[in-house]
Amino acid sequence: MKCDLCEQEAVVHMTQVVNGEMKEYHLCEEHAREQGVDIDSPISITDILMGLGQQEKQNVTHDLTLSCPRCGMARDEFRKTGRLGCPDCYKTFMAELAAAVKAMHHSSQHIGKIPAREGTQTRIKSKIARLQQDLETAVAREDYEKAAHIRDEVKRLQNEAASEEGSS
């Protein structure tokens, strides 16, 4: 099958639901990358349903000298002990921590308690995360109608979060 955008052989095949209608996409490697699809990592159907280019890109770094700018913990030290030096280390070492966190908890998104001091932004983001989990469940059950409904709610909340950010 050929790529939708050129004559190359398509290597990425996707289904997207827009306004309740399913659309199929077929892309070659180059155009898939251009659309923000990370070919090296398996793509979840949820990412596709959420629209291309919205997934977080992870720049896996193999910089051996990497260390946390706040507490000075070096990458080697962290790998040896499995413990982090300070809360900011999560930002510094996120690229290599992501897989371990996912393997440990079968999730990479907090949906529990939020400190009272956190603002509306955090609360909206948390609601979105919760809905994204519901979305995955709906997709797994092949309930695309419900999935599309949840997706619309997520988009509404994302807009709310954006306008909240603009006003603050």
Binding site: Y90, L97, V101, H105, S107, S108, K113, I114, P115
Partner: peptide, 22 residues
């Protein structure tokens, strides 16, 4: 003022306690 991220929840010294920290 607690260390908290909207993605990872309460940030802990060991990643095995992330999220709820519970």
């Amino acid at each position: 003022s607690y260390a908290f991220s909207s993605k990872l929840g309460y940030l802990t010294a060991c990643p095995s306690n992330l999220g709820t920290g519970m």
